[in-house]
């Protein structure tokens, strides 16, 4: 994260600059601001894939066995090895967007990037310890949810200012009070290797 380190001294200046640039000359994409409005446009090229850069991407997953500078050594689940190069523009998610400092040996990860000639993967995006579980809510406490995933009991911690919920396909909200015991839910979160619990990023119920 070279650039981030450079910026840590004055991240607000950097943001201020980017905001000014962004709001000054931005293209406003609204209902019809971009793209052809003539009938021919409807028959133009098919829609691009919604996942950016999907076609050029390399994927890797596994547990981090070693961190050497900005290179992560990853042991894949099927006995494969990967070297993941973090760059100054790699997005790193560990419960929330974070920096390379938060990545620890023993963490699991999914990485998407580009294969480099030297065999490493230059990561565009890294998701650390991300888990996506379909569970049944079994208990609700002030700072955590208890749920079963299959026959496994797991604890999901509610993280202030981070955990959000979505009800019946609605927008994500910090309001968690509508979660009910016995409900089926989808939990997106970050696994904690230390105690095998989960920090919850998102609870989706009634989907």
């Amino acid at each position: 994260m070279r650039q981030n380190h450079e910026n840590t001294g004055r991240p607000l200046d950097r943001r201020r600059f980017l905001t000014t640039a962004a709001l000054g000359g931005a293209t406003i994409v609204g209902a019809s601001a971009l793209g052809g409005l003539d009938a021919d446009a409807a028959f133009a090229e098919p829609m691009p894939s919604l996942d950016p850069a999907i076609t050029k991407s390399a994927f890797a997953e596994g547990r981090i066995t070693r961190i050497k500078g900005s290179v992560l050594e990853v042991a894949g689940s099927y006995g494969d090895q990967h070297l993941i190069q973090l760059t100054n523009v790699t997005s790193i998610w560990k419960l929330r967007p974070t920096t390379a400092d938060a990545v620890k040996v023993g963490d699991g990860l999914y990485a998407r990037g580009v294969d480099m000639p030297d065999g490493t993967i230059a990561a565009d995006a890294v998701w650390v310890n991300i888990v996506n579980l379909y569970v049944t809510i079994r208990g609700i406490a002030k700072d955590r949810l208890h749920f079963t995933h299959g026959s496994h009991e797991t604890v999901g911690h509610v993280v202030p200012d981070t955990t959000t919920a979505s009800y019946l396909g609605g927008a994500l909200t910090p309001d968690l009070s509508r979660v009910r015991i016995g409900q089926a839910a989808q939990i997106l979160g970050a696994w904690r290797p230390a105690d095998d619990a989960i920090d919850i990023a998102r609870v989706t119920v009634g989907h």
């Binding site: 709001l23 793209g35 950016p52 850069a53 790699t90 967007p97």
Partner: peptide, 25 residues
């Protein structure tokens, strides 16, 4: 639509976000 329009360019997931003058960047 903006996300679709930017899809050929965007490569990472969310890097940073902040609020400024009613906008969320």
């Amino acid at each position: 639509l903006a996300w679709q329009a930017a899809s050929p360019v965007v490569r990472s997931a969310l890097l940073d976000s902040w609020d400024d003058e009613g906008w969320r960047v």
